[in-house]
């Protein structure tokens, strides 16, 4: 009887000894955009003197007059299938349109759901930008570059 009682108390204690929910994982990833000199062979990375970037229709800037940038990381919308960004370099504005898909995937109870986003198309005005290209359509942690922007 004592054995059963002791075992009972032990099991009861173990049952309530739950691990805390902690999320150490990012649930979204950003589109990585790298700048290149148009016509260079081999391709040469291009650093902009200053750059400002914000989402079209938004008032908060993602980058504000950042100097010597050759890469920017842009968050895509979760509820729309396209995200528009205004990119200002040398006081010239271009509008970058990224079309994409968004799908949920479950991570854990602590993190909830993450978002798998894939780029399906890209357009850019050509005021100072020459051309754009998709180099990797998947937004993932280990991808170094999603879009090439040629100046």
């Amino acid at each position: 009887m004592k054995f059963f009682s002791a075992l009972s108390i032990l099991l009861f204690s173990l049952f309530f000894a739950c691990a805390p929910d902690v999320c150490n994982q990012s649930t979204t990833h950003k589109a990585k955009i790298k700048f290149y000199s148009y016509g260079s062979n081999p391709e040469t990375v291009y650093s902009l003197d200053t750059i400002s970037v914000w989402g079209l229709g938004e008032t908060v800037e993602i980058y504000t007059k950042k100097a010597n940038k050759d890469t920017i990381n842009l968050p895509l919308r979760l509820t729309n299938d396209s995200s528009l960004f205004v990119i200002v370099s040398s006081s010239v504005k271009d509008t970058l349109t990224i079309k994409h898909t968004t799908a949920h995937f479950y991570i854990s109870q602590a993190c909830g759901y993450g978002y798998k986003q894939d780029i399906t198309g890209i357009e850019c005005t050509k005021h100072i930008v020459d051309s754009v290209a998709i180099s990797n359509s998947s937004l993932e942690q280990n991808v170094k570059e999603n879009i090439k922007l040629y100046y």
């Binding site: 979204t28 989402g55 938004e58 908060v60 993602i62 968050p75 919308r77 979760l78 509820t79 995200s83 759901y113």
Partner: peptide
């Protein structure tokens, strides 16, 4: 309740 939460674009 399911919140689509983007640090930049806001939540829906």
């Amino acid at each position: 309740s399911f919140v689509e939460a983007s640090p930049y674009w806001g939540s829906t």
